[in-house]
Amino acid sequence: MNILIADSGATKCEWCLLSNGKKRKSIETQGISPYFLDAAGIGQVISRELLPVMKKVEIDQVFYYGTGCANPDNRKIVQKALREAFPGAGLHVTHDLMGAALALCGSSKGISCILGTGSNSCYFDGRKIVKNSPGLGFILGDEGSGAYLGKKVVQYYLYNTLDEELRYKFDAKYATGSKEILENVYKQPLPNRYLASFTLFLVENRGHYMIENIIEDGLNDFFFNHLCKYRESWKLPIHFVGGVAYGFRDVVRELCQTYEFELGSILQKPMDGLIKYHQ
Rank of each mutant, 00 (worst) to 15 (best):
109 K>S: 11
5 I>N: 06
62 V>N: 08
168 Y>M: 14
201 F>D: 01
16 C>V: 13
137 G>S: 05
108 S>Q: 15
247 G>R: 03
242 G>H: 02
252 V>R: 13
250 D>V: 12
215 I>G: 04
14 E>Y: 07
170 F>M: 01
255 L>Y: 08
60 D>P: 06
37 L>N: 11
120 N>E: 05
233 S>C: 06
274 L>G: 02
98 M>Y: 00
11 T>G: 13
212 E>H: 02
196 A>W: 15
229 K>S: 11
1 M>Q: 13
83 R>T: 12
118 G>V: 11
10 A>R: 14
20 N>R: 12
265 S>P: 02
153 V>T: 02
3 I>W: 02
37 L>Q: 13
98 M>T: 04
119 S>Y: 15
22 K>M: 03
42 I>P: 15
245 A>C: 08
82 L>R: 02
230 Y>T: 00
65 Y>M: 12
103 A>C: 07
184 N>W: 10
79 Q>M: 11
94 T>W: 09
274 L>Q: 03
89 A>P: 05
74 N>Y: 08
234 W>T: 10
268 Q>H: 08
178 S>W: 08
267 L>Y: 08
214 I>G: 02
54 M>G: 09
110 G>P: 06
120 N>C: 08
109 K>N: 14
125 D>A: 02
73 D>F: 06
164 E>A: 00
50 L>P: 07
48 R>N: 14
173 K>E: 12
210 M>K: 08
204 E>N: 15
239 H>F: 04
7 D>A: 10
12 K>A: 13
67 T>R: 06
25 K>T: 00
246 Y>K: 07
86 F>A: 02
221 D>I: 00
163 D>Q: 01
150 G>Y: 01
248 F>A: 13
207 G>R: 00
58 E>C: 14
137 G>R: 10
271 M>A: 12
155 Q>C: 04
149 L>S: 11
191 P>M: 07
142 D>A: 10
204 E>V: 07
84 E>V: 09
68 G>I: 11
191 P>E: 00
223 F>C: 08
82 L>M: 05
235 K>G: 01
258 T>A: 14
160 N>T: 09
149 L>N: 04
162 L>W: 00
227 L>G: 04
